[in-house]
Simulated assay, not measured.
Amino acid sequence: MIKYISTFIFFMGLMAQAQDLETLERDLKHKIQYTDTTFYSFDMKIVKDLPNRAVAVVAKFSTPYEEDGFDCKVTVYTVDTTTKKIVGQYVFPNTFTSDAIELSTFQLDFAPYQLNSKTRAFGVRWSYSSSSRVSPYGESYIALFILKNNQPTCILPQLQTSESQGDWDMQCKYDGKEIKRLLLMAPTQNNGYADLIVKSQTIIRTSRQPKNEEDPCIEEELRSPYQKEIWIFTEGKYQKLDTKKSAKK
């Protein structure tokens, strides 16, 4: 019985949080005058270890929307969940463009990016992809933020997490390459924040026509060993550690 009561209380808590988030979203959209024709995307979440704070990532068209392309500016907002006031914001300095390589919507990432015992980062993710079946292409990115005096502070402006490209003859012949990057927290620290480990792997995929054309295409995949980079927090943001300079010291 106690188990069922605990489960019921847990789900009731989730429902209440969802209702609170819905109210916050509606209120923020009203404040920024959000409409489907003037904004490209909207994502909002309550900060897990700061229930009195929510963050939102919002992309607004900076040029008129056209099916073959548009530009947008992206803002990260901090909202007080009690007063529903905007208490901080960060505007990405660059303009994002969607054209033949289509831009995805912007999404918040609340994976456990624990930088120290008191500080947890959150991510903003976006990607690009082509619609070509003959020459497929895609790339994805993440930026990391912390809340500093309620202000969303960018500590990792842009890290490419994947890239893929290929050539296909619409039959059997295919040559493709993909690079995947995994972001991990290291046990070591610099300037009070955990170092970041970026593990990358290259995947080569090929496909060829068999001697007997009635047989399936001959597919092959080759994965490289993982390569590792260390990124350290210095001068207010994460930067890749230059291993050559470190070795000379």
Rank of each mutant, 00 (worst) to 15 (best):
N190S: 15
Y174V: 09
E220S: 14
K199Y: 04
Q158R: 05
I232Y: 04
T202C: 12
P157W: 05
I197M: 04
L222F: 07
G166P: 01
Q171P: 00
G166H: 06
P152G: 04
E220W: 07
L196W: 00
Y193S: 03
E163P: 02
K180M: 04
C217R: 09
P187Q: 15
E221Y: 11
C172V: 07
P225V: 12
E219N: 14
E229Q: 00
S162T: 12
Q209E: 14
P187S: 09
D215F: 06
P157G: 03
D215A: 11
F233H: 01
G192I: 10
S162M: 09
T153H: 02
G166W: 03
L182F: 08
Q201N: 05
T202A: 15
K237D: 05
Q227V: 14
I232C: 07
V198R: 01
I179H: 07
D175Q: 11
D167L: 04
K173I: 05
K237I: 07
N190R: 11
Y193H: 05
L222I: 13
Y174S: 04
W231S: 00
A186Y: 10
Q209C: 12
I230N: 00
P152Y: 00
T153P: 06
K199P: 00
C154R: 01
S200D: 06
E163I: 09
S162I: 02
L156E: 01
Q171F: 03
T202R: 08
E213D: 12
T188S: 08
Q189K: 15
P225Q: 12
Q158H: 04
N190E: 14
T206P: 03
Q209D: 07
D169Y: 08
M185P: 02
I204Q: 06
M170D: 11
E220A: 13
D175S: 12
G166T: 03
K237L: 14
L196S: 00
L182Y: 10
F233D: 01
K173M: 08
K180N: 15
P152W: 01
S162C: 09
P210W: 07
Q165G: 13
E214Q: 14
Y226F: 10
S162D: 14
Q171M: 11
K199T: 10
G236F: 05
T161E: 06
T188G: 00
Q171D: 10
R181C: 13
K211G: 13
A194K: 01
N212T: 11
I204F: 10
M185V: 06
P157M: 01
K180P: 01
M185C: 07
T234G: 07
K199V: 09
M185H: 02
L222S: 08
R208V: 05
K173W: 10
